[in-house]
Amino acid sequence: MSEFAEKPEADFSQSGVADAPKGNWVDRFAPLATRPYLRLSRADRPIGTWLLLIPCWWGIALAGLSDGFSRWDLWLAVSSALGAFLMRGAGCTWNDIADREIDASVARTRSRPLPSGAVTVKGALVWMAVQAAAAAVILFTYNWLAIGLGVASLGLVLIYPFAKRFTWWPQAFLGLAFNWGAVLVYAAHAGEVRLPAVLLYGAGIAWTLFYDTIYAHQDREDDALIGVKSTARLFGDNSRAWLRGFMVAAVVLMAGAVITVAIPPDRVLALILALAGVWGFGWHLAWQLRGLNIDDPAQCRRLFLSNRDAGLIAALFLAAAVFL
């Protein structure tokens, strides 16, 4: 287990990474030997887990709108949270392995475990495998269709870190990967993939393009210096117009997903409540867009982080509609 020991020439166990929240639980409470690996998994920054988990909860609720919830759906909700934490950690570990030289050139990321030397590449690969194996144990409690979808998602996870090298649209690849759970858990509930799940997946991709373009504006200057592509660089001063388009697409597709669910005629109030959640989601995105200043990295970060709340608005209303 020597690969999991911190390098003696620098003590990174006591200090966190530059782009993590100050006073997070990893820096305060995690055992010293585990801190570099938890930081590699972004356990000190839960926003990524939320953004991976929320589409899963959307999918469960959307599937439940037509035939209700069962005890199985409680397991889906809990297991998708555990799976999101593990797969987000494995994905971030893989991303940092692929991006370690780029991260060393960017002020915001050079203190991360791999470029700083707190973790070796071999140790990171072992840690990634451990997280992926734990997530696989959860996945294999689902039906065969969901298992197949979960295995298929690995291709997107593997490609994503390299997207910024060959396309101006790496945020689209992130959207494809991060919202796959909406289809997966819908299939785990329904045993098939129907049109509402596909529309919901599209809504999630548009949402990811919205929030990750905002996020990418933090690194616009560094990315330009080292030749990394992003939608933030591609859109530049036209970002607001593009973001408005992504916002509209996300809301329209999510509304379409709700409308195409086979909700019984006597449950029209459930349909109204679900659509109210879509409206609340759209209102939050519009609020973000009104206050956006792409030249203020700190504000871009705050708005990006607020997307947890935007996604939860839709998730809570959709879940409440199932019980109405």
Rank of each mutant, 00 (worst) to 15 (best):
M1F: 10
G16L: 11
A20P: 09
N24W: 12
R28E: 13
A30H: 12
P31N: 11
L32K: 15
A33Q: 12
D44A: 09
W50T: 02
L51Y: 04
I54G: 01
C56W: 02
W57F: 09
W57K: 04
W57I: 05
W58L: 03
G59W: 02
I60E: 06
A61Q: 06
L65G: 03
F69C: 11
W72S: 11
D73Q: 15
G83P: 05
A84D: 04
A84F: 07
M87R: 05
M87C: 11
G91Y: 04
N95Q: 10
I97Y: 09
I97H: 10
D99P: 09
A104M: 09
A104N: 13
S105H: 14
R108I: 12
T109Q: 04
R110C: 13
S116N: 13
A118S: 15
T120C: 01
L125D: 02
W127T: 03
V130E: 03
A133H: 11
A134K: 11
W144F: 12
W144Y: 14
L145P: 01
G148V: 12
L149H: 05
L149D: 00
A152H: 07
S153W: 09
L156G: 14
I159M: 13
Y160K: 05
K164M: 03
T167V: 06
P170A: 13
F173P: 09
F173K: 08
A177D: 07
F178M: 09
N179H: 12
V185G: 02
G191W: 13
P196G: 12
L199K: 02
L200K: 01
L200V: 06
G202D: 00
A203K: 00
I205N: 00
I205C: 08
T213D: 10
I214F: 03
E221T: 09
D222K: 03
D223A: 01
D223E: 09
L225S: 08
A232R: 00
L234P: 00
L234W: 11
F235T: 03
F235L: 15
S239Y: 00
W242M: 12
W242L: 02
L243T: 00
V248Q: 00
V248M: 00
I263G: 05
L285F: 08
A286P: 01
Q288A: 04
R290Y: 03
G291K: 12
Q299P: 00
L305Q: 06
R308D: 02
G311A: 04
I313N: 01
A314T: 04
A319P: 01
A321D: 05
V322G: 06
